[in-house]
Design a protein around this nucleic acid. Structure first.
Length: 419
RNA sequence: GUGGUCAUAGCUCAACAGGUAGAGCACCAGGUUGUGAUCCUGGCGGUUGGGGGUUCAAGUCCCCUUGGCCACCCCA
């Protein structure tokens, strides 16, 4: 056993999986950059206060924060999500609106790890600050939807809901509190504890015993103000116009307390996974203000990289694929020829690898085979003397042939196929 | 954080009711007189996650510990 291993909930991403991660973020960047979003990079660490604004009734803040006091006596926390950081950046720099940004990177939450849930986990996402348009909500959701399409995912379902304006939400929370409190011990003990902290969260309970009560609980829709209701209707109309399938789920409540009005979640098709939330987001008008900035509407989403990739595995799409090599140089004259030829071919724009340690031809050919390169370029004593190299196709059944050393790079460039 | 479950070679796993660890794959070498992927032969490889205990004897039983996984909590 190794003397050291990664901390709980942390892990290494090795090739070729790491290449898949990079392609994942590349595809995401392509989708959102084409829609006018620019990348934002914020610090991994922020003043703890930035995150406590998320809401002190959320588990993310109360028990999952990775916080510490630094050498300057500052109370610091590793970011548990990106939205708060983006809002802090907005309040700090005051860019012109609408401000459309995207990000990708790691977040940290001190939780008990399990499959699809890590203490360090990556997300990609977008945020738009300074626009109130219901059709912006539609655009944001559509971009996530487009991203899933680009990955090849088919079994992702979109659920939407509206939490209403802050006042609506507050009245609804009180109605829920009254309803569940009246239920007394018909509600599970665990949920009664949740009720104390955050009545909305009771709707999320997965305990059998609570399901009947939850089904009959007050509905948020009945508390929507005319403005909130109109906004929600506009969002749904927009989604229909874009042919984006969705289901309205009145019991959908997201984990962060800053959400207002539109909220949504993308769920994977895999059965029996408690970690089926691939991503989600919503409006958070008021968060910028809470962080000391001007009153500014905001909306965005974050998608979990791990979970989305897990969903890709389940659907057999967006697989990890090794980098394609054009050639693998095999040199049995000592290695100097390989160094020179490899450098030359790489300079010519080809993807080339080679063997090391002056191993036997058989050993080097095995490496060439394993590398997946299209051709093996072989240099032995005969070739060295004749000023040639042997080019051997490694796939297909083409014949190997001797090529003048000086023509090798043009030869390879002219033979993208097997012969 | 609570509960459950598992941990044997680099990987996937085996070892009857306690009797001093084995296979496949991978890797290395040879068969092949310069040429891989196939085939054959051989080799390397483990203080059975770590520590302690019971026993003549522990991979196997008990305790502690570390880590994975599952459920709850919650979320990405």
């Amino acid at each position: 056993m190794p003397a050291f291993q990664t901390s709980p909930g942390m892990r290494d991403i090795l090739p070729p999986e790491s290449g898949r991660w990079r392609r994942f973020t590349d595809v995401f960047a392509d989708v959102v950059e084409r829609a006018g979003y620019g990348q934002i990079v914020t610090p991994l660490l922020e003043d703890l206060g930035v995150f406590t604004r998320i809401g002190d009734a959320t588990d993310v803040v109360t028990k999952e924060m990775y916080d510490f006091v630094d050498k300057g006596e500052r109370h610091i926390a590793l970011r548990p999500e990106m939205t708060a950081s983006v809002c802090r950046a907005f309040a700090e720099h005051r860019p012109t609106v609408p401000w459309k940004v995207f990000y990708s990177g790691s977040n940290f939450r001190y939780e008990k790890p399990q499959r699809g849930r890590y203490r360090q986990f990556d997300q990609v996402g977008i945020e738009v600050l300074g626009a109130d348009d219901a059709f912006l909500d539609v655009e944001v959701i559509a971009l996530a939807s487009e991203f899933y399409r680009r990955l090849g995912l088919r079994q992702v379902t979109l659920v939407v809901n509206s939490l209403g304006e802050p006042d609506d939400r507050a009245r609804y929370v009180e109605a829920l509190r009254a309803y569940f409190t009246a239920a007394g011990d018909r509600l599970s003990e665990a949920s009664r504890a949740t009720l104390e902290r955050n009545p909305l969260r009771v709707l999320d309970s997965k305990r059998e015993r609570d399901q009947e009560l939850i089904a009959a609980a007050p509905q948020i829709g009945d508390f929507h103000s005319p403005e909130a209701a109109a906004h929600f209707v506009a969002v749904l109309d927009g989604l229909r116009t874009l042919d984006i399938e969705f289901t309205v789920e009145p019991k959908l409540v997201r984990g962060l307390d800053y959400y207002r009005r539109t909220i949504f979640e993308f769920q994977g098709g895999t059965l029996d996974s408690a970690q089926n939330a691939l991503g989600g987001g919503g409006r958070y008008d008021g968060l910028v203000e809470a962080l000391g900035g001007p009153a500014t509407p905001g909306i965005g989403f974050a998608l979990g990289v791990d979970r989305t990739l897990l969903a890709c595995d389940d659907e057999g799409v967006f697989a990890a694929e090794p980098v394609e090599l054009d050639a693998f140089v095999v040199d049995v004259t000592g290695g100097l020829q390989a160094v020179a030829l490899t450098a030359e071919l790489r300079a010519a724009g080809l993807a080339v690898d080679r063997g090391y340690d002056n191993r036997s031809m058989k050993a080097q050919m095995k490496l060439a085979n394993r590398s997946g390169a299209r051709f093996a370029v072989i240099i032995g004593d005969d070739e060295l003397a004749a000023g040639t190299v042997v080019v051997k196709p490694m796939r297909g059944d083409g014949e190997q042939l001797a090529v003048p050393r000086s023509e090798i790079s043009t030869h390879l460039a002219a033979h993208p196929d097997q012969n």
